[in-house]
């Protein structure tokens, strides 16, 4: 128990630090950045204390917001995907989720990719619409969501493959 709390804290701090120091400054083609910190929300244990999980996601988003002067856009998007996560888990993993047997280390790769992609796109579309905050530039929102989304999905998939513990 104690061990898992330490693990989550370290992961939280490392992801926040890497996001603000490294991933926010990639600026591929001028504006495309991966938002890798949401991997914390994706692979948080499924059997959890739900209010605590939602609150931690909020805190994660707010930390990124504080460092990048963006108001509350990351916090809002993170809270949304944290709250909506069970729906996406059910959609992607189906019966496995209902029987409480999902382990991220040994699930089907396709199901995992669907899960990552859908949640990433939801997060990005909320974040970019709040960032740009104007209906007249909705095309720019979609453009940013698509390109940054592809980059994020790629990075998160790679990271989840590299850091998965094979039993």
């Amino acid at each position: 128990m104690n061990n898992s709390i330490t693990g989550h804290t370290i992961r939280f701090l490392l992801l926040a630090l890497f996001q603000v120091i490294l991933f926010n400054h990639i600026n591929f083609l001028g504006y495309i950045n991966p938002y890798v910190y949401i991997i914390f929300i994706f692979f948080y244990p499924i059997k959890n204390n739900r209010p605590l999980f939602i609150f931690l996601s909020f805190l994660m988003g707010l930390t990124i917001d504080m460092f990048s002067d963006t108001g509350g856009i990351h916090a809002a998007a993170s809270v949304c995907i944290a709250y909506a996560r069970p729906v996406f888990l059910k959609f992607a993993f189906g019966t496995m989720y209902e029987h409480n047997t999902v382990k991220f280390n040994n699930t089907d790769f396709g199901a995992k990719l669907v899960y990552i992609a859908l949640l990433t796109l939801l997060h990005h579309i909320i974040m970019f619409s709040l960032e740009i905050f104007s209906i007249s530039r909705i095309l720019l929102v979609f453009q940013k969501t698509l390109f940054s989304g592809i980059f994020t999905i790629l990075m998160i998939t790679l990271l989840s493959i590299i850091f998965s513990r094979k039993s």
Binding site: P51, F58, G71, G72, C80, L130
Partner: peptide
């Protein structure tokens, strides 16, 4: 309710920043 509260706080921060 917790979700709504936190989402509301985040929205207030966002609107303030605009």
């Amino acid at each position: 309710l917790l979700f709504l509260l936190l989402f509301g706080i985040a929205l207030v921060f966002t609107i303030q920043s605009h």
